[in-house]
Design a protein around this nucleic acid. Structure first.
Lengths: 219, 219
DNA sequence: TATGTTTAAAAACAGATGTTCTGACTTTAG
DNA sequence: CTAAAGTCAGAACATCTGTTTTTAAACATA
């Protein structure tokens, strides 16, 4: 049960949420300055000020003069199969990098066949990640081979040139390509000089996620 | 499964026991000086020295320069345990794939700055694995880029054509190349058409491990 | 014996981190 | 409106804390 039912400011809720997330990713609590960075706060004094309030309201406990002496009180800890500092990423299925084909299901509704654990230290961000196994060699010149596992961050927009998992509504197909918006159209560019780009209406393309990593195993 | 079964000194066991107890009583790990006090040790350097050993032997994990950055690894009560079906692989350092240079230390005597967790399902074998971060682009045509993390299985022999971490005794250098024995000599072949192979005496080459995987992160 | 390795102690160093102070801006109560 | 309280920013401060350096004792090995 949450100890207090007092209203918290946006900043305080954000801090609480950050601490909670930090404790998921690390085996030690965050420092004041890590909270400052994580919540985009301009001064450590503000962090301290709001931590004071969070303690007064019963959300946390603090050990004075002790680094990282913050304890979450409303946390039902004790469970969590993933090692601290690591997160589990679901491998949702396969994606075509050659001829587009395999659809991959939505993570909300599907059960990942497997998951991979990676240390958060390696990852740019730790939320909304998923993985797909690559079929085909259209991204070979970007050093992504058939069979590689590609990590994505779920996003619905992409910057020009980014590698994305694209869903082509009309064809009901998913494909791994570089993303180049060109007016009303979108060019989906493979990284293989023997293959041609795909041109589709911007409205027909749905960005599923952008590539943040690659894993390859030689078996 | 306890990571190592190496002999620990009385002092080291006591420290381990103290850390375990401290984590039971506090929501944050102990500092070096708290361990010093708790175990009646006369200097922080001695604590640091023995913590190094505990990490080398796989009992704990440490986050450099982070206060209280100690994590118990042999603890299966939720905090600090590697996820079931996963193993932790030490990232020992860097290896040159361009001009050979950076030596990487021996795993028996070195402390991994970080580890990566991978599910055993992805791995061909789960024993004697280690990882190195690649410097240079000599393996670019084998889809291994500068900055990639390469997983090795520790072995002292290799099949012709396998990608290996090679130690050149005379030069005191380590390099990532493909292995081709040719009589008395060994050809170490880069996967970059703009680079030339290295020829050395067979007796001058020490196989450290063979490549079993690649991990790449875009940050 | 000579030499190198392991373990230890003491001190100093450098960086990480909690805390405090001052002033300004915003909101609220009267 | 005015004053008090609440919130925030920037800087400085104090100390907590990981790391390094130096020196040396104990121990094993050649």
């Amino acid at each position: 049960m949450v100890p207090a039912a007092r209203k918290l400011s946006d900043r305080q809720s954000k801090m609480l949420e950050f601490i909670r997330g930090f404790l998921k990713d690390h085996p030690y609590p965050p420092s004041v300055r890590e909270i400052q960075l994580g919540c985009a706060i301009s001064s450590t004094s503000v962090v301290d000020y709001n931590l004071h309030i969070l303690r007064r309201e019963g959300y946390i406990k603090r050990s004075p003069d002790i680094s990282r002496g913050i304890e979450l009180l409303d946390d039902n800890k004790g469970r969590g199969a993933t090692a601290p500092g690591s997160i589990s990423i679901p491998v949702l299925g396969a994606i075509a990098a050659g001829e587009p084909l395999m659809a991959f299901p939505d993570s909300a509704t599907s059960d990942a066949v497997e998951t991979i654990d990676l240390p958060t230290s390696l990852l740019p961000k730790t939320d909304s990640l998923f993985a797909l196994r690559v079929k085909g060699q259209s991204m070979i010149e970007d050093l992504i081979d058939d069979g590689d596992v590609v990590l994505f961050q779920r996003r619905d927009t992409a910057q020009p040139g980014e590698m994305i998992a694209a869903w082509l509504k009309e064809r009901q197909e998913a494909t791994l390509k570089r993303f180049f918006p060109e007016g009303e159209k979108v060019r989906l560019q493979p990284a293989n000089s023997s293959m041609s780009p795909i041109y589709v209406d911007a409205s027909d393309v749905e960005v599923q996620g952008v590539v943040v990593g690659v894993i390859r195993m030689y078996n």
